[in-house]
């Protein structure tokens, strides 16, 4: 700051302030309209606790699945010279632009009882996926994983390949290099991607209500509870939103101190 005397130029400052107002005012609106005296009774209802627990658990599981599958995919996209890579990248990021409700129907067509894989799962193992907590995690992973893949791929591209090369000349194979050199280098990028992925999974609505349905305790996550409460009791919806807001802010602030400080430098 001290190096740039005169502060932020007006052509940047004014739109930046407008952006802050645009993003923060609706949150302020929630806080102003919140029925503060009713807050505690609303919060202690079992339904809210159930929805919140389910949201946190399923978003976290979806993030873990995304990490296990998404980081290797990001590596393939960033480090291999395979043909059709840009097509592959376009394909795997489709869920970013696909309306989530359509994503939910698409999941039905593959994993539903009548779906391509689901029919076989049902016949061979008697397993049906829709309307279970597993379906919630699948729907959230489908929508959120591309956020992780994009961030990690960006971090991998920004990381210096010469470290990998040095490891290779010292005799490390590609897997050891990935594990011992590449992964630690891009760890902040992975953490940032995981947070983004978790936040997207936490807010997921369309694919979840379509593919997993809405049943208290097993598939009703907070966004679903908020939407349905809005149909009848806007006040209750505001309370539920505040809970979600508080939990995600707390998590993001906590993670920011831990990891994201470094991520912002390297990414």
């Amino acid at each position: 700051m001290s190096r740039h005397r005169g502060g932020v130029p007006a052509p940047l400052l004014v739109p930046a302030l407008l952006a802050v107002a645009f993003l923060v005012l609706p949150l302020a609106g929630l806080l102003v309209r919140a029925p503060w005296p009713d807050l505690l009774p609303q919060l202690t209802t079992p339904a809210v606790g159930e929805a919140l627990r389910l949201s946190l658990v399923s978003a976290t599981l979806a993030t873990l699945v995304s990490l296990v599958l998404g980081v290797p995919l990001a590596w393939v996209l960033a480090r291999t010279r395979a043909r059709g890579r840009s097509l592959l990248r376009a394909l795997v990021t489709v869920p970013l632009v696909l309306p989530p409700v359509v994503g939910g129907v698409a999941l039905f067509l593959v994993l539903g009882r009548q779906g391509l894989l689901g029919r076989w799962l049902d016949e061979a193992f008697g397993v049906t996926v829709p309307f279970t907590t597993t379906a919630v995690v699948i729907a959230e992973t489908f929508v959120a994983m591309p956020f992780l893949v994009i961030s990690v791929e960006g971090a991998l591209r920004a990381a210096d390949v010469r470290f990998d090369d040095a490891a290779a000349t010292l005799g490390a194979d590609r897997w050891t290099t990935f594990r011992r050199v590449t992964l630690p280098l891009v760890a902040p990028g992975i953490a940032a991607g995981a947070v983004l992925c978790w936040a997207r999974a936490l807010g997921e609505f369309g694919a979840t209500i379509t593919f997993a349905g809405n049943f208290p305790g097993t598939t009703q996550t907070m966004p679903l509870a908020v939407y349905l409460a809005l149909q009848q009791e806007p006040e209750a919806a505001i309370v539920l939103s505040l809970v979600l807001l508080a939990v995600s802010l707390a998590t993001l602030l906590l993670l920011r101190d831990r990891w994201l400080g470094r991520a912002s430098v390297s990414a």
Binding site: V105, F108, L109, G112, R113, Q114, P130, F131, I209, T210, A212, G213, N214, F215, T219, Q220, Y227, L228, Q231
Partner: peptide
């Protein structure tokens, strides 16, 4: 499952889910 509107229920029936 408790859907948000009646057409969503119908969709799940039509899909055989």
């Amino acid at each position: 499952t408790y859907d948000d509107d009646v057409r969503a229920v119908l969709t799940k029936v039509e899909l055989g889910e």
